[in-house]
């Protein structure tokens, strides 16, 4: 299958970027502590919503990942700390060689704290191998809202995701109970691309998850209504309740359609775990 692909580069070439971010509440303020290893960097924190919410922006200075590259994230929210973490640009996963590019993340959120993990989309080139693996541990009085948007193949260049493989695993625990387990494996093929069971000809898939409390029917209805009220909804969407949370899925042709809906859902959900209104990070306003 991959016989035409160039052999592995020398082992020393692969990056292993790391970011360890700890957020601690000191009085009114959430104070970040960051340790990073290239090519990951963290920009200076922003406080657009006041001192309790720290916005951190991660920057990938190498511009993209090739096979064999790894990124490790370790995010720790101490009691009552509030943080929004995003990325400065879309991630690119290049088609390179049969080794996967790997992202591993661990998240711990202590009582009274919450984390929003809202990265920009990842563009997985056709033929690329991309594995991501996230484990989120939430205390009883803690919340996590995360999203993940993938563009599979550069459609503008005529790519379809008929080769390559994406493995994406999210595992979210709340108060010691496994709430959401999402182990996806998308093996690029014509059938995966075309089938309504798989991608249905759509290059973009997106997931938004909130875990921390049981959502009311009204919230579920409101999140669905936001989708239905999109001026020109491209693609299809679904919303459902988790045991202690809410899940949205998008499958379509447009990262901006996914992002527009997800931003509005995030803004709708924010009051359910915080008394500050959600302010869009400046880095998204390209």
């Amino acid at each position: 299958m991959n016989s035409a692909v160039a052999p592995l580069p020398t082992p020393g070439r692969a990056w292993h970027g790391q970011a360890t971010l700890t957020f601690e509440r000191r009085g009114e303020r959430t104070v970040p502590q960051a340790q990073t290893q290239a090519p990951l960097k963290v920009q200076r924190p922003f406080y657009p919503e006041g001192p309790s919410l720290c916005q951190s922006v991660l920057l990938h200075t190498a511009g993209g990942m090739v096979g064999g590259d790894r990124l490790s994230y370790d995010l720790h929210l101490k009691a009552n700390a509030h943080a929004l973490v995003t990325t400065a640009a879309a991630a690119k996963i290049y088609r390179d060689h049969p080794q996967p590019a790997q992202v591993n993340g661990t998240v711990r959120v202590e009582p009274g704290a919450w984390l929003e993990w809202l990265p920009q989309e990842a563009i997985v080139f056709e033929g690329a191998q991309y594995h991501q693996n996230w484990r989120v541990d939430l205390a009883a009085q803690a919340h996590w809202l995360g999203w993940d948007v993938l563009r599979l193949g550069r459609t503008a260049r005529g790519e379809r995701f008929c080769q390559g493989e994406v493995r994406s695993r999210f595992e979210v625990w709340h108060d010691g109970q496994l709430i959401w387990l999402d182990p996806q494996r998308l093996v690029g093929s014509k059938t995966l691309w075309q089938s309504p069971h798989g991608l249905n000809g759509c290059p973009v898939i997106g997931t938004l998850v909130w875990v921390g409390a049981v959502p009311t029917d009204e919230v579920i209805t409101a999140v669905r209504a936001i989708w239905e009220q999109q001026p020109n909804p491209q693609g299809e969407a679904g919303v459902t309740a988790l045991q202690r949370g809410l899940l949205c899925r998008y499958r379509g042709a447009s990262t901006s359609a996914a992002r527009r809906w997800f931003i509005q859902v995030w803004q709708l959900l924010r009051p359910h775990y915080s008394d500050t209104a959600a302010t869009i990070p400046r880095v998204w306003q390209r």
Partner: peptide, 17 residues
């Protein structure tokens, strides 16, 4: 333990509505 559930998940979510 991995699967592709996009079609089923969307169809089932939309069924709820």
């Amino acid at each position: 333990l991995m699967a592709c559930n996009w079609g089923v998940a969307l169809a089932s979510m939309q069924h709820e509505a």
